[in-house]
C-alpha cells in the first residue's frame, strides 16, 4: 500500500501551510483587522495628544514620545497575547482544532501556524505604531546598529513570551465568547501598572514592584531604551535601562510560557471530556 511507504509531510511543512491559511483568514476578517490594528495606535494618539508637553527636566523630549516608545509593548501584547488567546479559543469553538486532531497534522504544526500569524501581524502592528509615532509625535528612529540590535532581541523575546502565554491563557476562557473579556482584564491592568498608559515615574513603588514580576514592564522599558535618549533612563524605576535583567526576565517568561503551554494545551474545550 502506498500510504505505508510515502513519508508523512513534515511538521514544519504542514506548519507553514497552516501559517499561510491563518494569515489569509486573519486578513479576510476585515473588521477584526481594522480594530486589532487600530486599538493600540488609537490609544497612542489619544494619550500622545493629551500629554503633548515637554518632559520635566528634558527640554528636547516630549511626554508623547515616551508613550510612543513604550506603547510598542502594548502593540505586541495585543497582536500576540490577546489575538492568539482569542484565536485559539475560537479554533476550539468552531471545530478547527477538532478537525486537525483527526488528521496527521501535529499540535506543533498548528502552533507553527500561529507563530507565523503572530509574526506577520506583530510586524505590521509595530510598523503602524512607529509610523504614528514618527509622523505625529516626532519619535526618532535610531541610527546606530546597537539600538536596532536591542530592538531585535527585545522583539523576538517579547513575541515568543506573549505568544506562548497567549496559547496557555486560551485555556482559561471557557468559550470563545468569553475569551476577549477574560484576556483583556489582566492585559489592561498590566498596561497601567507597568507604566505603558501612564508615566512609570508617577507610579507607586508597591505597584511597580508587582508589575515588575510580569513581562510588560520590561518590554516597555526595553522599547523606551531603543527609541529615547539615554538620559531618559533616569526616569525608570531602577534609574537605568537594565538590558541584562530585561533579557533574563523575558527569557524566564518564555520558559514558563512553554511549560504552561505544554501543560494546559487542549485540543477541545471543557465541554468535551
Amino acid at each position: 500500500m502506498t500510504t505505508l511507504t510515502v513519508p508523512l509531510p513534515s511538521t514544519l511543512r504542514t506548519g507553514l501551510s497552516r501559517g499561510v491559511v491563518e494569515v489569509k483568514q486573519f486578513f479576510r476578517e476585515r473588521d477584526a483587522v481594522v480594530f486589532t490594528f487600530a486599538l493600540p495606535s488609537c490609544i497612542l494618539i489619544m494619550l500622545g495628544f493629551i500629554f503633548d508637553e515637554p518632559l520635566d527636566g528634558y527640554a528636547d523630549v516630549h511626554v508623547s514620545q515616551v508613550f510612543a516608545a513604550g506603547m510598542i509593548a502594548y502593540g505586541i501584547v495585543s497582536t500576540a497575547f490577546i489575538s492568539i488567546g482569542v484565536g485559539i479559543s475560537g479554533d476550539r469553538d468552531d471545530g478547527t482544532l477538532k478537525r486537525l486532531r483527526a488528521t496527521p497534522a501535529t499540535a506543533g504544526a498548528y502552533l507553527i501556524g500561529k507563530v507565523v500569524l503572530v509574526t506577520v501581524t506583530t510586524l505590521a502592528e509595530i510598523t503602524l505604531m512607529l509610523a504614528v509615532g514618527v509622523v505625529l509625535f516626532d519619535l526618532r528612529l535610531p541610527t546606530d546598529a546597537g539600538r536596532w540590535l536591542t530592538f531585535g532581541w527585545l522583539l523576538a523575546l517579547s513575541i515568543v513570551a506573549c505568544t506562548l502565554l497567549g496559547i496557555a491563557a486560551s485555556s482559561l476562557a471557557r468559550s470563545a465568547r468569553s475569551a476577549p473579556a477574560v484576556l483583556n482584564l489582566p492585559v489592561l491592568a498590566l498596561q497601567f501598572s507597568s507604566g505603558i498608559f501612564v508615566s512609570i515615574a508617577a507610579l507607586p513603588a508597591a505597584m511597580t514592584a508587582v508589575s515588575s514580576l510580569f513581562p510588560v514592564k520590561w518590554m516597555g522599558q526595553g522599547f523606551r531604551s531603543v527609541f529615547l535618549p539615554d538620559g531618559l533612563a533616569a526616569q525608570e524605576v531602577a534609574g537605568q535601562w537594565e538590558h541584562g535583567r530585561t533579557a533574563l526576565v523575558l527569557a524566564a517568561w518564555c520558559a514558563l510560557g512553554l511549560v504552561l503551554c505544554l501543560a494546559t494545551f487542549r485540543w477541545t474545550d471543557r465541554r468535551t471530556r
Binding site: K24, Q25, R99
Partner: peptide, 23 residues
C-alpha cells in the same frame, strides 16, 4: 458540526487539508 475556515474558499481548504496526508 463544524464552522471552521469560514473565510477560506472550498478549493483553498480542501487543498490545505490534502497537504496533511502522505498520499
Amino acid at each position: 458540526q463544524a464552522n471552521d475556515s469560514a473565510g477560506l474558499t472550498v478549493r483553498e481548504v480542501v487543498r490545505h487539508v490534502a497537504g496533511f496526508y502522505p498520499a
